[in-house]
Design a protein around this nucleic acid. Structure first.
Ligand SMILES: [Mn+2]
Ligand SMILES: [Mn+2]
Ligand SMILES: [Mn+2]
Ligand SMILES: [Mn+2]
Lengths: 218, 218
DNA sequence: AATTAAATTTAAGTATACTTAAATATTTTT
DNA sequence: AAAAATATTTAAGTATACTTAAATTTAATT
């Protein structure tokens, strides 16, 4: 399957799982930086290949085969991220950028080699789960977004759900990384902002960030 | 530049450097598994991009820009081969197969990371030189093919110039690998065959193989 | 030197993955 | 419930990278 198809089914998968948006062609088009017309065309083509269900004006739905393909690409993406992060001195943004390309040119054979080398990790450096060889995610995630965290409680960062360079730069600068401990000192619910302390520093985060930072109770 | 273009200039480069064949479109077509017509089309297109010189019915000649592009792809190919060979338990054929794909989706940034990790190696596991960041090959190669080796002399294998699985399988089976010592015990020049001993075993090699196994005097 | 064989080029056509612009349907607002 | 705004689809067209078949040129053979 082509790069275009792999990116398309992956975008649908991520849109469903992570962003909970309506998965209509326009949404996917925006994510992939292509026109709505191109997304509609592709949706029809993939429907004919039984990778998804397409009905005019309705949300796209991956079939089992489509989901399997998406998970296979996601597996390679996250394995590369884990691998590059471990071996080289690369940032969360850099590993994502490279993985976005390498994921399409990686054989199952090589993916398994990488996985074995790393000890078959269950999570990538962003805290995202890595599907196994059969496209299954066996871990359960009970983490919540910082926007839903409780005032006064201590948490461990479990997931940084983004691919934006500025966000990752901000995180790196402030010690916000997978596994680090924070305390939610105040929830400004009216203004949708969250105050946290980390390493004795106090930081005020707005909705854009608190929605994509996930945590578990410490 | 596209995968098709990168593979095309690389094929010309390898054809010139390694095989010493006439680099007409038909030759490249055969290497790449495309039709002669497609190769001619591509040659014209690349000429318009100043990557090569094309004159009807004449051999193709890479320009400086074309050579630089080819060397950049070759660098990534050989770095991947060296990297995969070192980290994972993969054969000469397997590393080549994966590198053939990864070479096109590797940023200069990542190539430099891989190179640094390996200690900026000058040769890949086949004994082929790895161009540096500026596309320069600084090592000199004085090795000769086994078909030109002298009877009775001892040699060290310096290069296995192939990408054929069967050849590599044969080499692996018989201890023919980069750096290993052999003795040329007999040259059957009329029949173009060469007898060698390696690890007390005697092997008779035909032309197909002696032309692509390169050695240096021990 | 002429004939034949082989290689190369040209011509015409296809699949993929896009584009913009127009038409149509859906959703939101009044 | 209409009107307006928004989103989606259809239509028409483009660039890339290929294909096969026919025409042409070059190279080899007699
Ligand atoms: Mn990522
Ligand atoms: Mn991608
Ligand atoms: Mn190789
Ligand atoms: Mn390649």
């Amino acid at each position: 399957m082509s790069v275009a198809i792999e990116n398309f089914v992956k975008a649908i998968y991520n849109n469903n799982i992570q962003d909970h948006h309506d998965t209509k062609p326009g949404n996917i088009a925006k994510k992939l930086g292509i026109s709505n017309a191109a997304a509609t065309d592709m949706a029809k083509k993939l429907a004919s290949k039984d990778l998804l269900k397409y009905e005019k004006y309705q949300a796209l739905q991956l079939t089992e085969a489509g989901t399997k393909m998406a998970l296979n690409v996601v597996r390679k993406h996250r394995l590369w991220e884990a691998f590059l992060f471990k071996l080289f001195d690369m940032s969360l943004h850099e590993i994502h950028r490279e993985a976005e390309l390498l994921e399409h040119e990686t054989s199952d054979f090589l993916a398994n080699k990488i996985s074995a080398y790393l000890g078959n990790p269950k999570f990538d450096p962003h805290g995202d789960p890595i599907p196994n060889e059969n496209g299954e995610i066996t871990t359960e995630d009970h983490s919540i977004s910082l926007s839903n965290a409780e005032e006064g409680k201590s948490y461990i960062i479990s997931r940084l759900m983004s691919d934006d360079k500025e966000f990752f730069d901000f995180c790196a600068l402030n010690g916000l990384k997978y596994g680090n401990a924070i305390v939610v000192t105040k929830q400004f619910s009216k203004n949708k902002m969250t105050q946290i302390t980390i390493n004795t520093n106090t930081i005020l985060l707005n909705e854009d960030f608190t929605n994509i930072i996930y945590v578990n109770e410490a």
